[in-house]
Amino acid sequence: MTHIDNLYKMPNPTENNEIFSTLFHNETLKIESIRSNLKTPGELYDQDQDEWVLLLEGEAKLEIGTQTREMISGDYLFLPKHTLHRVLSTSENALWLCIFSS
């Protein structure tokens, strides 16, 4: 049966936390939403999948390799697999849409 949900009605995390929700997943594709409220740097990622990221709401500062990048609502980027990256900080209302592919 088809299920309808709403990204904007998901709860906000407490400070320095994130809430991950898998929206769709099969053998080659995963779509995830992430609510972030980070004031300190998050986990350093080195993923086995390519990742396309869209910041739907809020602001964020990322570390990608040796660069620091700022994002605002509507910004998106592509991270090839094994690109070291982490979220350094976000506004309290940051909402991400992430698509991972093998």
Rank of each mutant, 00 (worst) to 15 (best):
F20R: 03
Q49T: 15
V53N: 01
I99H: 04
W52G: 06
S91A: 01
C98Y: 02
P13I: 12
E15K: 03
N16T: 02
L77K: 08
K30Y: 05
L23S: 09
A60E: 06
T40S: 10
I99K: 08
N26Q: 14
L84G: 11
S101G: 14
T40W: 08
F78E: 11
N12D: 13
T14S: 00
D48F: 02
D5W: 10
V53R: 01
V87W: 00
T14R: 08
R35P: 02
T68R: 08
E92G: 00
I64P: 09
F78P: 09
H85R: 04
K9R: 00
K81L: 07
K39N: 13
I72S: 01
I64S: 05
T28I: 13
P13M: 12
I34V: 15
L84R: 10
F100V: 10
E57M: 00
K30N: 04
M1T: 05
L7F: 14
L55R: 01
E57L: 08
E15C: 01
L84A: 09
R86L: 13
F100K: 07
L29E: 00
D5A: 12
R35K: 15
M10I: 11
I31G: 08
T14Y: 06
I72L: 12
Q47Y: 14
E27F: 05
S33L: 07
L95R: 04
L79T: 10
V87L: 00
T40I: 02
W52I: 15
P80F: 03
N93D: 15
T40M: 09
E15N: 02
K9A: 07
E27H: 13
E15Y: 02
D5I: 08
N26H: 09
L77A: 10
L54R: 11
G65T: 03
T90S: 08
P13T: 11
K39V: 07
V87K: 10
Q47H: 15
D5C: 14
